[in-house]
Write a protein that binds this DNA or RNA. Structure first.
Lengths: 334, 334
DNA sequence: TTGAAAGCGCTAACAC
DNA sequence: GTGTTAGCGCTTTCAA
């Protein structure tokens, strides 16, 4: 007697084993029509006995659903990997809870999304690292499958978007510091390459910041910083030169944070108030008291999946969702 | 006239448009049999005109190949995300160059690999974050599809493995320091949770270290450290208490490095020689001169893909590949 | 409540 | 060098 491993049995084998027709097995498994409890059980035990697993390709061919989501993720050096991975983790976890798997596309091949979409490898797509005038937008709009952007292009058209409201992040950071009496508020922004790509979040934060300091009649003191310790040091040095009376800093560059802290210490300027914009796991390693605004990567990834599944289910709700940020305190000795 | 978007046309449409049979189209596209140049061109232009893309599910059903690779990746908090992402990037990039896509599985569901494998969603699997007695090994051995482990379990059996030779890393780090006259060599290892899981690389490095210091008749001074600035500080403090004459440190914990450097500085012990074990992008942000051994994540990911494609092609080469590490110098002012 | 059978779009014999 | 056609394993009418 031959015991074949799992994945060998077909729906026909199950049907024979259970003494029913293939359609009955199919319906029993999908629940798309009522099946008597007795047959349901016979089928289930046949499935277990044979280790039956539906063949994904056959199912996709017949039903036109793959149960796979494309995740277009950047993996660019200048974007903080821990942020990326938070988004990815959120997407993958939530996708599984919707019974979807995730096909990971990195950006090295600009047409890979087109390839997998028109090859019917995926039911939908989630796109990260969106630029203000993202070159992928035409492709995305032409897709049969729904897509959700993580980020906010200038003209999303009918595409669904979700992100932290970075304009509000900039405003709130400034407002929070102003409320604490600060008026010389600098901004250390994303890496020059990130800004050069006109990455949507980087510019939006800067816009919010710019508006807010203007309303305060405070000087706009924004610099881009390389995502490194050295980048943080240079940025602080430059800002202190431009404005020696600097009394606060908004830092939107996770990798530069250690350098920023170090430079302030060396300059004897621990009095400069800090608002960090970063993921939750990063703030824990910051060695000074400060305030921070969370970039909730995992949460945004989850929402993106929820939006995409809603679209798959035919819903047509609000197209753009921006999460409201909150300023929180980070204290070494609570 | 209706211009339908890409992904609507079938191979039958192409065949009609080009005035040939479907099999000719199929063979022309796959190159699996000689086609006259003339027909090849007619077919190609029909493909272009119609925007034809083969339906992945149909292809998988007929050919029993999905051209998809499962990547089982951890995304565990205690493992450095930048290391993980290097592996992932290596895998995805190399996979694409073999015309494979990557289905990303995270570990939250232990049976997901079984699910996608027996559901014929993937042709092969690459598994990261391998433990010495990994609970997934039985599943992996039962799979129809080939698998490659990144890491080295105690008993890999017939499974292919690839990793940096961490035993050698430990030995070389010690040998290098010993050659520089150091005899009180500490080891700051992976996070306690990583060790508790018996993660293969962590223990192998420790073994190499232990053997090497024993041969020197030097004391074994190993501690686990939390992956954080605080973890690095505590580890240094503890080691300096145990051995005030400490003159060298091997650090195999990326996230603890800043704390280690800081603690040594505060203790006035900048004379302690350092060998860091970390990915290349991390060493750049280390603010002191030291030596380091690269963990070539991307390279290992690439090799894993090459091994898996070799297996798909029917090869049966060397089962376990361990990359030889090299000690290099990191100098702030070269 | 169940079954029979027609596809889904492609590959790969098997023909010529 | 090219065409015909029988599957691949599933879903989903249509019929009972």
């Amino acid at each position: 007697m031959t015991t074949s491993g799992p994945g060998e049995a077909t729906i026909g084998d199950v049907a024979r084993e259970a003494g029913v027709s293939v359609s009955t097995v199919s319906y029993a498994l999908s629940g798309k029509r009522p099946i008597s409890e007795a047959t349901r059980q016979r089928i289930q035990s046949a499935v277990d006995r044979l280790g039956y697993r539906p063949h994904a390709g056959a199912r996709a061919l017949a039903s036109r659903r793959t149960h796979v989501l494309a995740l277009v993720a950047p993996l660019r050096v200048d974007v903080n990997v821990s942020v990326i991975l938070q988004f990815v983790a959120g997407v993958v976890t939530r996708a599984r809870s919707h019974d979807l798997d995730v096909l990971l596309l990195t950006n090295d091949d600009p047409h890979s999304l087109d390839r997998v979409a028109s090859g019917s490898m995926v039911d939908a797509a989630i796109v990260m690292d969106v630029e203000r005038e993202d070159p992928r937008l035409p492709e995305l709009r032409a897709m049969r499958q729904p897509a959700v952007l993580i980020g906010l292009p200038d003209d999303p058209g009918p595409l669904a978007c979700v992100d932290l409201d970075f304009v509000s992040v900039g405003r709130q950071a400034v407002a929070h510091l102003a409320a604490a009496g600060r008026r010389r508020i600098g901004l250390i922004g994303a890496a020059p390459t990130v800004l050069a790509r006109r990455t949507s979040f980087a510019e939006r934060l800067m816009r919010g910041y710019g508006e807010a300091v203007a309303r305060l009649d405070a000087p706009a003191l924004a610099v881009a910083a390389q995502g490194s310790r050295g980048g943080g040091i240079s940025a602080v040095t430059e800002l202190l030169e431009r404005e020696p009376a600097l009394d606060a800093l908004v830092v939107h560059n996770e990798l530069a944070v250690p350098g920023v802290v170090e430079a302030l210490r060396r300059a004897g300027r621990e009095d400069v108030a800090l608002v960090l914009v970063c993921p939750a796991d990063l703030v824990g390693s910051v060695p000074v008291d400060c305030d921070w605004i969370e970039v909730p990567g995992a949460r945004i990834g989850e929402i993106a999946v929820d939006m995409v599944t809603a679209q798959l289910a035919g819903a047509t709700g609000p197209e753009v969702r921006l999460l409201e940020p909150t300023v929180r305190a980070h204290r070494l000795n609570p």
